[in-house]
């Protein structure tokens, strides 16, 4: 354990002064070739979908997030990375106000969705959640049929005609790349699907609401490599239409799917920027240590 003290020292120094790449061979997540990742310039030009300013979040007295400011561009994938317990999920839940359901929580600062503060007292949480879909880490299908799972959102939004519902279900399942596997058994229980299929079902369920934004909390953490690859391909396709925010522990995955990345540590946003840059040339030592797997 000779390396421990040096890691500590790195973490204390906030700004990276020397680049000592030559000292240790660094295994960086490779940025895939040929994928249509947005460059830093493209990111800068993209419209701002969500803007977070000085956001702090408290679980009763415990501050879980401190003064976070971040801009999330439209039709891009933003990845949140950072060690366990650093507040990624908490931050993600701030966007669709799922944290409101936990008693004793408090938010300071603001999150603007297309210029409107989602924490304004005038915000209708129900319509907010219809615009911002969420996929949870553990797939959570309702104990009902596949059809009922996907049609739940539109149904409670007031769509009653079976024909309309069916169209939405088909479109959503097709977009989530599950249609071909389930089209002959829509009335079967969703609990009979495999883990990867269930996760895609949950994506379809969120898409059925026709949201602008998709929040995904470690959507592939319980899946095998093949299913993970399918979900990643899916994210790539979906970003043409949706603004996606994804939490992931897998650096390779973050490098593969995201355009922008944000690194969190102990409730602080340490660094954010175009994935290409953050992964190849991080500005902070902590970020570098984390993405190269030296701590976390």
């Amino acid at each position: 354990m000779a390396s421990t003290p040096s890691v500590k020292k790195h973490m204390q120094s906030s700004d990276k002064t020397t680049s000592d790449h030559s000292k240790s061979p660094i295994v960086r997540p490779s940025i895939p070739e040929g994928k249509s990742m947005r460059t830093a310039d493209e990111l800068a030009q993209a419209t701002e979908k969500i803007s977070v300013t000085d956001l702090s979040f408290y679980y009763s007295e415990n501050r879980a997030l401190t003064d976070i400011s971040l801009s999330i561009p439209e039709r891009c994938v933003t990845a949140f990375i950072g060690p366990s317990g650093c507040g990624k999920s908490t931050f993600l839940r701030c966007f669709n106000r799922m944290n409101d359901m936990i008693e004793g929580t408090r938010v300071e600062g603001e999150i603007l969705l297309e210029g409107q503060n989602i924490y304004s007292p005038r915000t209708d949480i129900v319509s907010l959640r219809k615009r911002i879909g969420m996929v949870f880490q553990k797939s959570t299908p309702f104990p009902k049929s596949i059809f009922d799972n996907v049609s739940f959102g539109p149904k409670i939004a007031g769509i009653r005609r079976k024909k309309d519902l069916f169209e939405i279900v088909e479109r959503s399942l097709q977009r989530s790349a599950l249609w071909d596997e389930v089209k002959d058994r829509l009335s079967e229980s969703a609990l009979n699907l495999s883990g990867g299929q269930q996760q895609r079902l949950c994506i379809a369920r969120a898409l059925a609401n026709d949201p602008d934004i998709l929040l995904m909390d470690e959507p592939a953490s319980a899946l095998d490599p093949a299913s993970t690859a399918r979900i990643e391909d899916l994210i790539f396709e979906l970003k043409e239409q949706y603004t996606i925010v994804i939490v992931t522990h897998n650096m390779q995955q973050a490098a593969r799917v995201s355009d922008q990345a944000a690194f969190f540590y102990q409730g602080l946003l340490v660094e954010s920027g175009a994935t290409e840059e953050l992964f190849t040339n991080p500005r902070k030592q902590q970020t570098e240590d984390y993405i190269t797997g030296r701590f976390g």
Binding site: K130, G133, F136, T140, F142, F152, I156, A157, A206
Partner: peptide, 20 residues
């Protein structure tokens, strides 16, 4: 998780309770 999923899809408390 059932309740959370329903809320995340924009269900009201009544809809969550009644339908799920």
């Amino acid at each position: 998780s059932i309740r959370r999923s329903a809320y995340a899809l924009g269900a009201t408390r009544w809809q969550t309770v009644w339908y799920q």
